[in-house]
């Protein structure tokens, strides 16, 4: 086998492997983010008014991240948040956001963020995004990848506007915290 053929053969051998590895990494990222979303709820207090009745479900809306929605649904299937059952809804862009306690907007481009988040502004909805690092996504929590790890930043002003209380422990783990008024 000459050198060229060898290189070609190696390339053929390697290509599927690296693609698979990337796929695995992306799947891992989705799973970790889903786990985070569930964990966040333990460290956030919603105002009583956010729930119409004591037994009401805790409702999560997911926009533009179906895989994550499926993953999260699996995570919360046997779990509760603040003693409430959890419902995960896949939402279309522009769907009404009333009654949502947590809203995740997927995608890194940030193009649809302003619209999705504007509708949640002032509501008791914990907004979570995965926007490009460096900008101001306008959400309460934004996932960022740091050194191949899923980290997150927290912005307190939108949380305060919605009457959400975020525990110090969550803030301690956050990469960055944008302080609020108080």
């Amino acid at each position: 086998m000459n050198l060229r053929a060898l290189v070609l053969a190696l390339a053929c051998l390697l290509a599927p492997a690296s693609a698979a590895a990337q796929g695995d990494a992306r799947a891992a990222e989705v799973r970790i983010k889903a786990a985070f979303l569930y964990k966040f709820c333990d460290f956030v207090e919603w105002p009583t008014a956010a729930f119409a009745a004591p037994g009401d479900a805790f409702t999560v809306g997911v926009v533009g991240a179906d895989a994550l929605a499926d993953e999260l649904a699996a995570v919360v299937a046997q779990r509760s948040v603040h003693g409430r059952p959890v419902v995960v809804r896949k939402l279309m862009q522009g769907a009404p956001l009333a009654g949502l306690h947590l809203l995740f907007v997927g995608g890194r481009d940030g193009g649809r963020l302003p619209e999705a988040l504007a509708a949640a502004k002032g509501r008791p909805t914990l907004t979570v995004t995965e926007a490009e690092d460096g900008g101001d996504p306008g959400s309460v929590i934004n996932f960022v990848l740091v050194a191949d790890k899923v980290r997150f930043d927290v912005a307190l002003p939108p949380a305060e506007a919605g009457g959400l209380k975020i525990s110090a422990r969550l803030l301690a783990v956050a990469r960055k915290v944008v302080a609020g008024s108080s």
């Binding site: 970790i32 786990a35 964990k39 990848l145 050194a147 790890k149 899923v150 422990r169 783990v173």
Partner: peptide
């Protein structure tokens, strides 16, 4: 939370 933050993806 801390452990989740340390998983490489």
């Amino acid at each position: 939370l801390e452990e989740l933050s340390n998983i490489e993806v």
